[in-house]
Amino acid sequence: MKNTTEQPLTGGNANAGVVRAGDTVRRPAGPWTPSVHALLTHLHEAGYPAAPRPLGIDEQGREVLTFAPGATVWPERFPLMAPDERLARVARLIRDFHDAVAGFTPPPDARWNVLIPADGDEIIAHHDLAPWNLVIDDATDTWTFIDWDAAGPGTRLWDIAYAVRGFAPLSANAAYQRPDPDAAARLRLFADAYGLDDEADRRALVPLLGVRSRSMHDFLREQSRRGTLPWARLWEEGHGDAWRGDAEYAEERAELFTRALLG
């Protein structure tokens, strides 16, 4: 019999079957769940505060995680990310995650839910560090990144390129697009707050902004061709065009962004 205290959690693109039960979240498990739980356990033991803690598997075979109180930033609360200090805080949280995960050794039989292969395997990356996966609890000033199911091999720059696109934002969408000097300044602020000090990394980040967004377009297009939900639905809703537009936006401003990062 279904637990009547369970509350379905909405939002996101692949949240079917995700519920809250008391102070926990129950989610459908997959072959990658043991590896993700090993990762989250490592982050907890390393003292990283911005990730849920795994609590095992319940009697229905679902993974159990600690519940992050608050609300996701996207879309209603996205304006609260506008102040520079909040953008800088996101960048520092991501740097702290990358530093913490650098000491993680995956299980020998690790399996990952790799949706889009990254450009390397320097770390186990989150792959979806975005406003829709950041929960903020105003009462306790707690910030938590959720939805770690797509974690897997990647690089710091791969995560950064995706994150700064969403949080700065660096977007062709007129509803979110900032004047070019402002967008470039926020890219610089993010890189500075993260501590991206190596000039070669700063140069490499600029083309990766377009590559990372275009990879999302290509992924949605392929999943639409296969009829795979929920990605096919997102393609039909125009998300592929949005990602392609953001890729072109970054590519057209490559010189401006490079000057901002190196100036």
Rank of each mutant, 00 (worst) to 15 (best):
F257M: 05
A51Q: 02
G240V: 02
I136Q: 14
D180H: 12
P8C: 14
A125V: 05
E199M: 05
R212Q: 15
G210N: 04
A254H: 06
Y194P: 05
L261A: 11
A150K: 13
H98D: 14
D149M: 10
W112S: 12
Y176E: 15
A242W: 09
M216F: 01
L115D: 02
G154H: 03
R202W: 00
L43V: 06
R188F: 05
D241N: 10
A88Y: 04
S224K: 11
L115H: 12
W132Y: 14
D147S: 02
R186N: 05
A91F: 03
Y176W: 14
G70W: 07
A172S: 14
P106V: 10
H217T: 11
L220T: 00
L170A: 03
E252V: 11
E222D: 12
R92H: 06
R221K: 14
A100V: 00
P153F: 08
E85C: 13
P54S: 08
R259P: 01
H126R: 07
Y176G: 07
A46R: 15
D197R: 15
F190R: 15
Q177W: 01
P153M: 10
A38T: 01
D182T: 15
R53K: 11
P181W: 07
L170C: 01
Q177D: 08
G238T: 03
W235P: 02
Q223C: 12
S213H: 03
V164T: 12
E255N: 10
A51E: 03
F104P: 08
E6G: 02
A68Y: 11
L208D: 01
P75S: 13
W112V: 04
G210W: 06
H127T: 14
V206P: 00
D159V: 08
L87N: 03
L196K: 04
R53L: 07
L170P: 00
T142N: 02
G240Y: 09
M216S: 07
F190N: 09
Q223L: 09
A260M: 08
W32Q: 08
W74S: 07
D147V: 01
A204E: 09
E63C: 10
W148P: 00
D180I: 14
R244V: 05
D241W: 06
D147M: 07
R188K: 14
H44M: 09
W74Q: 13
R221H: 11
D109A: 11
I136G: 09
R53T: 13
N3S: 13
L208K: 12
P31H: 14
D128E: 02
